[in-house]
């Protein structure tokens, strides 16, 4: 890891609250995070560490913050009151502010299948608990089409429509 380029005050630019500095890397945030099942996984603790170290370039290249599904579990369970969810949002804002052409890959995911994360898993567990099959938007092609048309009206999608074209 190249440390000489790091900016020790980066946390002030991203998430200017001492809440973040309280983090003691206990891993509560990531051990139950739904987005940590993704590929690559969202590792909230690691993002916090990168902010604290001021690893600007690495953070700009990292798209995992966009995988957060806003469930707020990390926020509820963090023993140090770091407010990790707030930090995730701040990272997103900072990334966008530092790169106007940035198109988060998760938008492409959302456009393609309606979700950032795969939600169709755990079918066996659902079945064992007697729950019905999950109705996801991917199983309803017409709804998905309407949804994509709606997304196309947002600037971030329409201005970068080449990224969203049908294969």
């Amino acid at each position: 890891m190249d440390f000489s380029e790091s900016d020790k005050d980066l946390w002030k630019a991203i998430y200017n609250t001492k809440d973040l500095l309280h983090c003691f890397n206990c891993s509560t945030c990531l051990s139950g995070c739904p987005a940590s099942h993704g590929n690559p996984p969202l590792l909230v603790r690691n993002l916090a560490r990168m902010v604290v170290y001021g690893l600007e370039d690495d953070l700009l290249d990292d798209d995992t913050a966009w995988a957060c599904v806003s469930c707020s579990r990390c926020e509820e369970m963090c023993p140090m009151d770091v407010k990790p969810f707030e930090m995730i949002l701040s990272i997103r804002k900072w990334q966008s502010a530092n790169d106007e052409t940035r198109v988060p890959p998760s938008i492409v995911e959302i456009y393609k299948r309606g979700y950032t994360q795969s939600v169709g898993t755990n079918t066996e567990l659902r079945e064992s608990l007697g729950l019905p099959e999950l109705q996801t938007i991917t199983k309803m092609p017409e709804m998905l089409k309407l949804y994509q048309e709606m997304l196309m009206k947002t600037p971030v999608v329409s201005e970068n429509d080449y990224m969203f074209s049908e294969e």
Binding site: C26, S27, T28, S31, G32, C33, M77, P79, L125, L129
Partner: peptide, 11 residues
Amino acid sequence: RCRVQAVMLNP
């Protein structure tokens, strides 16, 4: 070395 977020009950 990890503080786990939850215990889950298996079927």
